[in-house]
Write a protein that binds this DNA or RNA. Structure first.
Lengths: 239, 239
DNA sequence: GCCGTCCCGATTGTATACAGTGATTCGCGA
DNA sequence: TCGCGAATCACTGTATACAATCGGGACGGC
């Protein structure tokens, strides 16, 4: 089970994909922000064809939303989607832990520890963007130790989406992911304690989700009647 | 946690995507088969633009391979990829079982049992294509009971790829997935026995993988020297 | 006869032109 | 001043034209 091309090496659209993805991870592109094809054409000096390919790939990875006849905007996942993604992460990352424990080398765990130190540094420096990016990076590199390209790809997707959700639903001035929990997790892995590692990962991701304001106002009503808390007088095909 | 659009509703390219995907699931399109843009244009009566969008999506889902300047062919995953996909399935589908047990309704399990009966019928009728398709369908519908759209999407991808791998590496006249194992799995779920269900799923997927001829000839040598079982006389940058 | 080279056909990669769609705005009339 | 409708604009959806690239076959030299 060795490395094989995990992400299809794109062609000319790759720079656009990378730039948008990086901007989302750094939270420079906020959820909901529109991406018109024309603006990207101008920024990257390529034709709309290329831009559209990039947008199609970004949409497939749930980084942008693609509404017919309305173009692309940075995805702004609903609360339901957020809950589903965090549940999926709990399943997936916990399930990957045994492979991580079996295959991780001590020096890789050390490298992970130094990453957590950076994370803590960024936090103390009040560099929230860098800190959030680094804590995502931690999960990515942890799952990478399982040496399964398929799981790694899925985990990458989910972590990226989680960062979007954090940007959307994190109450300002709140913390997202504690570096301490990350360190404990590494220790459990180093000790080859599958049960404890799984328990810590589960609790950690639950805590991350709990810190988000997913319950404050349940799902902004998309329907006017619902928003006004009225029921339509006449039957109008209640879906 | 309700349903939200799990697959991005494509536009005009959807029929092409569906046709190719269905053909792969039915094993009418064999791995490695080439798909030229021109032929799809003719078959579907749309422009190359649309065909390319379909191919891009199919490539993203690892159903077709897209080599630069060489166009598209049905993916023919390597043995390493096959092992990785089956390992990922073990992780993912086992991890999803607790949610399945918690959320599945009795009538849904009954419907699943009738699916297994169909599967058995197809097997007895020597309808191998139908049988393989149905056994894939079983896994898909089982994971759907976890009611997590994200996990469902990933499971769908992996099952589809597994079918491709089965087409590639299944020794002819061999069985792939036993209907009996499927029934036992349903029973364990109905009994809400998480441990047994997980053990059965793990064993079942391991058995599926073991039936494939992944070890017969280890990875066809890509290098001439390796193929002739020689070592280069002079040092030539051994990678 | 064998090997290297050149050319040609087929196929993909990219750009652009044109059509269709949705939303905003402007103008007209009450 | 307000409401309503039509023209307009910005943008995306689709088709097509042109450029680039790769593989194979013919040709000629050795």
């Amino acid at each position: 089970m060795q490395s094989y091309p995990t992400t299809i090496q794109g062609g000319t659209e790759q720079p656009i994909y990378d730039a948008v993805a990086a901007a989302v991870l750094d939270q420079r592109l906020a959820p909901g922000m529109r991406l018109t094809e024309a603006s990207l054409v101008e920024l990257f000096g390529v034709s709309r064809t290329i831009v559209r390919m990039a947008l199609l790939r970004l949409a497939h990875d749930h980084i942008v939303q693609l509404k017919p006849n309305h173009g692309a905007s940075i995805a702004s996942p609903s609360r339901d989607e957020t809950r589903a993604v965090f549940e999926a992460r709990r399943m997936l990352e916990c399930a990957a832990l045994p492979a991580v424990i079996a295959r991780a080398l001590p020096r890789q765990l050390d490298s992970l520890r130094s990453l957590v130190r950076q994370e803590d540094l960024a936090f103390r420096a009040r560099d929230m963007r860098g800190w959030i990016r680094l804590s995502g990076e931690f999960h990515r590199r942890l799952i990478a130790l399982a040496r399964n390209p398929v799981i790694l790809r899925y985990a990458n997707e989910l972590v990226t989406q989680s960062l979007l959700m954090t940007a959307l639903y994190m109450p300002s001035g709140q913390t997202a992911c504690s570096a301490d929990e990350h360190l404990q997790l590494i220790d459990a892995i180093a000790a080859r304690d599958e049960r404890r590692a799984a328990r810590l990962m589960q609790a950690h991701l639950e805590a991350c989700e709990a810190r988000l304001a997913l319950d404050w106002t349940e799902e902004r009503p998309s329907d006017l009647a619902e928003a006004l808390q009225l029921r339509p007088r006449r039957a109008s095909a209640a879906r």
